[in-house]
Structure formats: C-alpha cells, structure tokens
Simulated scan of single mutants.
Amino acid sequence: MNILKHIPNSITLANMYCGFLSIGFTVANHFDIAVLLILLGMMLDGIDGRLARRFNANSKVGKELDSLADIITFGIAPCILFSYTNTIEGSVFDYSLAGLFLLSGGFRLARFNSETTKDISYFTGVPITAAGGILALSTLFHSHIPPIGNFLIIAVLSYLMVSKLQIPSFKNISLPNTKTTILILIGVLLLVFDTISITALILTLFYIIYIVYRIRLLRTRKHG
C-alpha cells in the first residue's frame, strides 16, 4: 500500500514534465502539440489530487510539487505560447501581458497555499490551472481573433486569478463517465489538429455546456 501513496506525486511530476515539453514544442513552433501537452497536464492535475485524497497521501512534499507543476505547466508554458503566437512587430505589449499573467498566477498560488482554512466547495479567484488551459486553447484561434481580443483574453484571465470571485470547485463534482470522457478527448483532439473545423467548435461548445450543467447541479444540491 505504501507504493500507492507515491502515485500522486509521480503524476504531479508527469504534469510538470508536460509543461517543460510544451515550452520546448512552442520554441520549435509546434504550437498544436504545445497546447495538447498543457491540456494533458490539466488532466493529470485533476487526477493527482483525487488520488492523493483517495489514498490519504497528502503531504507537504506533494503540496510543494503541485505548486511547482502548476506554475510551470499553467503559468510559464501558456505565457510563452501566447508570446510566440501573438507577437506584434515593434511591440513588447504582448510580452508584458504574458508576464502579468505569470505574476498573477504566482500570486494566486501563494494566496491559496497561505490560506489557513479552506472550503473545498469553492475557489477564491480562478485557479491557474483553468486560466492556463483557457489561455492555451485561445492561442489555437489567435489568427482568427483580432489582436485586441487576444490581449483582452489574457488581461481578463490575469484579473480573474487575483480577484475575490468565488468559483465553484470541481473537487466535489463526480468525474464524467467513460463515454463522456471519450467524447471530450475526441473534441480536444479535433480542436487541436483542425482549429477551423465546425465539428471541433460544436464539440467544444457541448463541453462548455456540460461544465456549466455540472456547476448548476452542484449548486442545486448544495442549496437543496
């Protein structure tokens, strides 16, 4: 059983490695793969926490590793990806905003880790995991979005991370069943490898609707 307690940390390290690989593929101009690695990191980030609670394997080492993985995979990697896909000639505005996103994410993590009492039913401010994933996905459509639109996306995400907004936590939401998970993965793959496909856009829309439905279901159960 002791071996099982090491599984969450191993998954966290795999998450961190996804961030490193994403940076490498971004520098090599393979942006689709870089996005896919960040999305894979998001999946691993959700798995390691659940397994840690299931195996009662929460530890200070695991907490530190999780924060390091978050700042690399959902902070640094998306920032570099944004900078490479949204460069304006003669301007450093995009790099400045990318840096602001990283600082906001770092502050968000520090604030979360310093909280003495935590209610796992909600987050204060958008988690860096979600913000980094959204920023990474937005880079797939950077050529179809006006520059000001891309900058607004990263600016708003930066603000939401440091805000005091209460965001429902997915820790109390059951994992989707196998069929739903397969559908989501197919949608993500289509989105990554064919960004102008109407099928990918439709599947992405269904995924967003599904997430909203789960949040509303959680609120209904909580207040019912």
Rank of each mutant, 00 (worst) to 15 (best):
N2T: 14
I3W: 09
I3Q: 13
L4D: 05
K5F: 13
K5G: 01
N9W: 12
N9I: 05
A14F: 09
N15V: 02
M16W: 12
Y17R: 15
C18E: 00
G19D: 04
F20M: 11
F20G: 05
F20P: 05
L21K: 10
I23K: 07
I23W: 07
I23T: 12
G24E: 11
F25T: 15
F25D: 11
T26L: 03
T26K: 01
A28V: 01
A28H: 06
A28N: 15
N29T: 02
H30F: 08
V35H: 12
L36S: 12
L36F: 14
L40Y: 10
L40S: 13
L40T: 15
L40A: 15
D45W: 00
I47Y: 07
R50Y: 05
A52W: 00
N56S: 14
N56G: 03
A57C: 08
K60G: 02
E64N: 15
D66F: 03
D66L: 02
A69E: 01
I72G: 04
I76D: 07
A77W: 08
C79D: 04
I80K: 02
I80P: 08
T85N: 12
E89D: 13
G90T: 06
G90A: 00
D94T: 15
D94Q: 14
L100H: 04
F101T: 02
L102Y: 01
L102N: 01
L102K: 02
L103I: 12
F107Q: 10
F107G: 02
R111P: 08
N113I: 03
S114L: 13
T116M: 09
Y122L: 07
P127L: 13
T129D: 10
G133P: 05
G133E: 14
L135V: 06
T139R: 07
S143M: 01
P146S: 00
P146L: 09
N150D: 02
N150E: 00
I153D: 03
I153W: 07
I154R: 10
L157Q: 08
S158G: 05
S158I: 01
Y159G: 00
S163N: 01
L165P: 00
Q166N: 06
P168I: 01
S169H: 02
N172F: 06
S174L: 05
P176M: 03
N177D: 12
T178Y: 12
I182Y: 12
I184G: 14
I186N: 06
L190M: 03
L190C: 12
V192H: 08
S197H: 07
T199R: 05
L201F: 14
I202W: 05
L203D: 09
L203N: 07
T204L: 09
L205A: 14
L205F: 11
L205S: 13
I208E: 04
I209D: 08
Y213R: 13
R214N: 07
I215N: 04
L217V: 08
L218V: 10
R219D: 11
T220P: 00
T220M: 13
R221N: 08
R221K: 14
K222E: 10
H223W: 14
H223D: 15
